[in-house]
């Protein structure tokens, strides 16, 4: 992620891209959740207090195929466990009080931690984190209200190729990490292991086990001009 020369704020193009992606996710996910829940208030509340589209989708998916409430809840928690890993990572790089630290933890998602961790200073990390958090919240909430009150105005998201947008966005966000050998090794091992385990492991666990990629990458010497 490139940034302006004067601050840790990501470029506007990056923020707009993240906002638009989360708008599309907000619409498509919340149309599905609304169909399942049948209440606008509950859908909006879940969007706000769970703040994990994958957890909501995991819960709905398990219930839709006849799974028990407990199994659906566990699936929702397991797929969110990656946010704990990302929060641990972010926590090592920020120097803020408990209130801001807790707020940051509760807002940990893939794009904001991915962008923030590429900043060279603790102040830059937290600044970039909140800029991206703001952009994704704006997109997510506009998408949520659109999905709940206007329905699926996007239409068939897959026909429009929107299912490729989020992985493409995440790839763009971690691109700089991949340009250094340790980050590349972590990504290849983590991503490869996850793909290999997807057909056989319970939902959510391949992503937790992708942590192995970071452990393997520890063997790779640190680049001389590393940021972090």
């Amino acid at each position: 992620m490139s940034e302006t020369s004067t601050s840790a704020r990501p470029e506007w193009g990056t923020l707009i891209g993240i906002g638009l992606t989360f708008f599309a996710i907000g619409v498509t996910v919340n149309v599905l959740v609304y169909e399942h829940v049948g209440s606008a208030v509950k859908t909006i509340a879940a969007a706000g207090i769970v703040l994990s589209a994958t957890s909501e989708l995991a819960y709905v998916a398990v219930r839709d195929v006849g799974g028990s409430v407990l199994a659906a809840l566990i699936a929702g928690w397991v797929v969110a466990s990656r946010f704990g890993l990302l929060a641990a990572s972010l926590g090592t790089r920020i120097q803020v009080g408990h209130l801001q630290r807790s707020c940051a933890a509760l807002n940990c998602l893939d794009p904001n931690v991915g962008v923030a961790m590429q900043q060279p200073t603790p102040k830059g990390v937290i600044t970039a984190f909140w800029w991206v958090t703001g952009a994704l919240h704006l997109g997510w909430w506009c998408g949520t209200f659109t999905g709940v009150f206007l329905g699926n105005i996007i239409g068939d998201a897959n026909r429009l190729g929107l299912d490729a947008v989020f992985p493409a966005l995440l790839l763009a966000i971690i691109a700089n990490l991949l340009r250094q050998k340790p980050g590349l090794i972590a990504a290849l091992v983590g991503g490869g292991l996850c793909a290999a385990l997807l057909p056989i492991a319970p939902a959510g666990t391949p992503i937790i086990l992708s942590l192995t990629g970071a452990v393997v990458a520890l063997k790779v010497p640190e680049p001389k001009a590393a940021n972090s």
Binding site: R82, L85, L86, A88, S89, G91, T92, R93, D110, V113, G114, M117, P167, L170, L171, I173, I174, L177, L178, P182, G183, L184, A186, A187, L188, V189, G190, G191, G192, L193, C194, A195, L198, P206, I207, S210, L211, T212, G213, A214, A217, L218, S228
Partner: peptide
């Protein structure tokens, strides 16, 4: 900790 985002986000991408 600094390598976790590359591994975990790549897994999500995969």
């Amino acid at each position: 900790g600094s390598l976790i985002p590359a591994a975990v986000v790549s897994a999500v991408i995969a």
